[in-house]
Nucleic acid binder design. Structure first.
Lengths: 350, 350
DNA sequence: TTCGTGAGTGTTAACGTTCTCATGCCGGCC
DNA sequence: GGCCGGCATGAGAACGTTAACACTCACGAA
């Protein structure tokens, strides 16, 4: 009598036909071994006779067996899942980081579960953390680079690894681009072309990335003894670049503009164009990010390239490091960006 | 004697301190009830005395209890997790869809696990499906709009809901933008402005979305009795738009170009600019997607807007519908896009 | 021979939930 | 007064896996 498991799904019209796949015991029975041996084969334990292993593998194929990760997680207390707190993932940078991270995680044998947040206030971040905890993730990566997030993350349950990408905070290990250096590169490039100073249309001041870029710009001006105009903060959008760009275009002394990102630069380019100020002959513009389109802007944009894929990879590295050592480090990995000269910047006029 | 559970993590230097959170039994003990009652409170069963419920809730708070979803999944056979097969998520469209989907999933009480694929060949799609199955997801959404994917998806294990977003295939329920209609709108707009015909720089022919747009463009030309030039396929990049744009710019009879997406349009704009052909005075250009930057192109781009967030929401809807009915439908939801007129298109010259 | 050893395998007990059933209690009805 | 039915709760068995341990051989050393 082998009718102990009637696979449902045959009685027509029954509400949920939900088929039950085969489990270890089925495989074991078919292969004529114990379920434990099946488990051993599955986990590459050494002490299994090759012949037995083959029989088991054949049975697994025959039954189209897949291991149940819930049971596995339950007993091993390892979910092999990473949580990702994502913010503004429609932007190129975060989207690329997410992609890089997922690729790296897959390579390391981890799954990735995403929790998007609409805003970065403490509450919604903690809520996202909560949702991820409920899934018993082993670690959390936060692509949510705002100062407030750092402190929120600092209090995730102990025993859970955390990494911030981008800005991060003092209390959490972080991987980021060296925004300050990147901004300094851009600024020095412009100063080197003979511009007496460089204007700056900045990103939102509550993003550490924006702040670091502003700092780098200021430091470079300072080091060169150039005057430091007030930075012009906005959001990361082309719209902000356009608005500020209009004001700057109206000022004939302005000859160089460093923008917080490429979208802002796009807006600035349009404003300059509308005002009849030629780029780069009259005004030079430099962006930040090197989005794929930036080499097709009018004119092609000089910018600072971030390697987002690498960012994803490194943050995973940091996470796994914590996972394996069991210690929450406070390490801060910084990636140096690369300056990319195109045609939107040129010698100072006159 | 209550030393039956020594929480590890105190002996200094021990390799993995991995703290064990509290479980139902702990809560039960503290509240002076059975674990079953705790479960009832957790799942909002009606038959619990309010007083008892409060005691349990207090205990949960005191112990900072969170339910273990692995155990829950194991016994209920419901993971409350959706798998997402993502392709090219650094592009604006897919990234936005992903975001919309995650938001919708969260609202419906589902988690989202992502599997990116680098290429869309059958093997890597099936591999992604496999990884998701291993996590026992309840359904799979594929933002992977290429013909080949449809057939690959058709053979995911029965009892698993599947939805394709974008192109999809015959064998899988699909949510997509009505690309054909959108393209026709754009084409009719240009014809209405007096252009005798409309050139088309298309997306990759193996993307159904690209094909549908090309079809819509062709149909509109046909309906108007306009000549139908050969479409010019490329990838989705600004580079492709630029290359084709250069060729088109050299042809003085060309006065209107419909581009497969906004990036292509950006490249085309640059090519026209370099060739000294003014937009829209001499040549009109229309894109597709309405990426946030497109209103800051030079000139601001006339385009067709897709509501990606809605796309995400609807695909979730379709998935849940299958999940609850237990039947794999073959429904095809089509969202009508919106035409957005800006300044890159104008009356035909002469 | 006798025992230890180690490779190959099986048995049993977790893991933390939810589900099914059993129990005690209270009020109302015949 | 005994019986029934609903409420509030508890006891125990799943779920499918891995970990810990026990067992059986075959083989070689004492």
């Amino acid at each position: 009598m082998t009718a102990d498991r009637i696979d449902a799904g045959d009685q027509p019209g029954g509400p949920p036909p939900r088929t039950r796949g085969s489990v270890m015991r089925d495989v074991a029975r078919l292969a004529g071994v114990s379920h434990q041996t099946v488990s051993r084969v599955l986990n590459d334990h050494p002490n299994v006779r090759p012949e037995t292993r083959d029989r088991v593998l054949a049975a697994m194929r025959a039954l189209n067996y897949r291991r149940n990760s819930a049971a596995r997680t339950l007993v091993t207390r390892r979910s092999r899942t990473l949580g990702l707190i994502a913010y503004e993932t429609t932007l190129f940078g975060p989207a690329s980081t997410l992609y890089g991270l997922e690729q790296a995680a897959r390579a390391a044998g981890y799954f990735v579960s995403v929790a998007s947040v609409r805003t970065l206030d403490r509450e919604s971040v903690l809520d996202a953390v909560d949702r991820l905890c409920e899934q018993s993730v082993e670690g959390i990566v936060a692509i949510a680079p705002q100062s407030s997030v750092g402190t929120a993350l600092a209090q995730v349950p102990a025993g859970l690894a955390v990494v911030g990408v981008g800005g991060g905070g003092e209390h959490v290990p972080t991987v980021c681009i060296d925004n300050s250096t990147g901004a300094a590169m851009a600024t020095r490039h412009l100063l080197g072309l003979g511009h007496t100073t460089v204007q700056h249309i900045a990103g939102p001041p509550d993003w550490p990335e924006a702040r670091d870029r502003t700092d780098g710009w200021r430091a470079a001006l300072h080091a060169a003894g150039a005057p430091v105009p007030a930075p012009r903060p906005g959001d990361w959008s082309a719209r902000a670049g356009y608005e500020h760009g209009r004001l700057l275009a109206a000022d004939p002394t302005v000859t160089a503009i460093f923008c917080g990102n490429d979208q802002i630069a796009l807006g600035a380019l349009r404003a300059l164009h509308e005002a009849g100020r030629r780029v780069p002959d009259e005004v030079s513009v430099v962006g930040f990010d090197d989005v794929p389109e930036s080499s097709y802007f009018l004119p092609p944009l000089t910018t600072v390239r971030q390697d987002f894929a690498e960012l994803g990879r490194r943050s995973l590295e940091l996470l796994i490091e914590q996972l394996e050592s069991g210690v929450r480090t406070n390490r801060r990995v910084s990636l140096t960006p690369r300056f990319v000269a195109r045609t939107s910047s040129g010698p100072a006029p006159g």
